[in-house]
Amino acid sequence: MSRIQARFGELAEQQRKALIPYVTAGDPQPDVTVPVLHALVAAGADLIEIGVPFSDPMADGPVIQAACERALVHHVSLHDVLDMVREFRRTDAHTPVILMGYLNPIEVWGYQGFAEAAAAAGVDGVLTVDMPPEEADDLVSALHERSLDAIFLLSPTSSEERMRKISQSASGFIYYVSFTGVTGANRLDVDAVAKKLDVIRCHTELPLGVGFGIRDPESAARVAQVADAVVVGSALVGKVAGLVDRPGSIPAELAATVSAMRAAIDAQAVT
């Protein structure tokens, strides 16, 4: 059983919802990332998404684009990201880690070599934003051979046929993009999300995470009512942007944001 599957199993038993924070690796500088990951876990993160910096993040809004640019000033590569995961794993053997990014850095490395190195570093799942299942056969089989989960997106424009197809390629969980748009936009409509999740659940047993547009404890709690997991990205990365001249304070500041969301999600579960 993968670490991701195990974690969702535990959460289901406890009737809790997963909180998945996202940070861009190496933002604003490489030595901040591992302390941030530990701080996020201490503040209540159940899984962690690490963004792999890319020069052309087409599906991201300005907040995460800027984070990629800050990391790339330091030439943070996919190899460096795996080094960060390896270091994180030295003291955290349990929290699932998902890499999220674009295909080209993986393409250039080679699918087999990347999958082997990612598994060895302690990565649990990989989400390549610009690779729909139609193009993903080779990468998915390379990931599965190394017991890595291939995480796929579904969106408001996905047909039921695509939901079926994607649930066949996906493992770990499915990431539902809450609106048509880029990361960091403010277009969340929880009722519409709930309706779509009901349809998706007809086609998959996998846990459903929801991301895009979750910016505060209130929206996190509302999404947690309808989803199995809540993904928070731009709200955290936007905090980092304001702290580039005080990098030492970033772990604690992000932890405070995540704790508040954690508390709101858990309070919702009790009521």
């Binding site: 087409m58 610009d130 729909p132 139609e134 796929f152 996905s158 047909s159 695509r162 993009v177």
Partner: peptide, 20 residues
Amino acid sequence: ERGHFGPYGGQFVAETLMRP
């Protein structure tokens, strides 16, 4: 039919753009 010229081409986009 999915736009491949040998190994090149294809549709490498985020899920939201697949339907359009």
